[in-house]
């Protein structure tokens, strides 16, 4: 059933996001194409200087491209949050009477939201690549080595960083879903309750984080336990910079997975055991 939900959710969000992604891509790629063309003409001495009007058009296109990319991510976020929010409104009367579990509903919304966001990020990488790829006849792209780390280790670190980013995106959406689910407990004031939940839960989490950091800092000052652990980790991995980066990213990933797991479980509990559609 999850694949059917995914099909339905991708189709619904795609109606809004596909034209937007397509439009922004055309705009940005047109800008990059023009920019690269001017660059090529200048390199081949066919164009001595950039005329004022061309610079103005280029600047306008560049500005619109940046706005377009910003709009792409904002719309992606808003569309996906609204899709979940509406699940607890009139659309819930259809979606929650389908023979699927609350966890499947949640999974579908999350996978779709993360996929569109990752799709947007990949597009930005594509724009970056289109801007940086060397023109025919120009010097090839140089890759500068990072001291103390091999290319393979760097690739591993980047892959781990990508996983951390993916977990971060998923946690972000899950957190907003949780706030919507909590807000859904007050069906008559759902929007206000959802927004209030967002700020209250965030405040509580920040206070909790500050307390944990305060305790950790106090422990570090009095016993030096944190430095001890750091040194032990460094020694454990034979003073390898890559291993330390892996350990750090691994810890962040673990924290995100645990946080995301808790938020998922609580949201799923609200959807399956405390559902109260107005």
């Amino acid at each position: 059933m999850l694949n059917k939900l995914l099909k339905h959710d991708f189709k619904a969000t795609g109606q809004v996001l596909l034209p937007l992604y397509g439009g922004v891509s055309i705009l940005v790629l047109l800008y990059i194409f023009g920019w690269r063309m001017v660059e090529h003409l200048q390199a081949s001495a066919l164009l001595a200087g950039i005329p004022r009007w061309l610079a103005a058009v280029g600047g306008l296109f560049g500005f619109l491209s940046v706005l377009g990319v910003l709009a792409l991510f904002i719309c992606c976020m808003v569309v996906n949050i609204l899709r979940f929010y509406r699940l607890l409104g009139d659309e819930g009367y259809l979606m929650f009477t389908l023979p699927v579990t609350a966890a499947q509903q949640l999974a579908s919304k999350l996978i779709v939201a993360v996929s569109w966001t990752v799709g947007g990020i990949l597009l930005v990488f594509l724009y970056g690549f289109a801007m940086a790829v060397p023109l025919p006849g120009s010097a090839p792209m140089e890759v500068y080595p990072v001291p103390g780390i091999t290319t393979l280790q760097l690739a591993g670190a980047l892959a781990l960083a990508a996983l951390v980013a993916l977990a971060g995106i998923a946690c972000g959406f899950l957190f907003v879903y949780l706030c919507c689910a909590v807000g859904g407990q007050w069906p008559q004031h759902r929007l206000v309750a959802s927004v209030a939940s967002f700020f209250i839960i965030q405040f509580v989490l920040q206070v909790a984080l500050m307390v944990v950091m305060g305790v950790a800092a106090f422990g570090e000052v009095t016993t030096g336990w944190l430095s001890g652990i750091s040194l032990n980790v460094y020694n454990l991995f034979n003073n390898s910079l890559a291993a330390v980066i892996y350990a750090m990213l691994g810890c962040i990933l673990l924290i995100m997975v645990v946080f995301g797991g808790i938020v998922w479980a609580v949201t799923n509990h609200f959807l399956s055991k405390k559902l109260n559609l107005a």
Binding site: M1, Q15, R86, D90, Y93, L94, T97, L98, P99, T101
Partner: peptide, 25 residues
């Protein structure tokens, strides 16, 4: 739960189908 929803056909007192859908959807 999912098992009962498979055998229950429910008509709500409001429009639950997303308005962006076509009849065929």
């Amino acid at each position: 739960g999912p098992a009962t929803k498979a055998v229950v056909s429910y008509l709500p007192d409001r429009m639950a189908l997303p308005s962006s859908l076509r009849v065929e959807d």
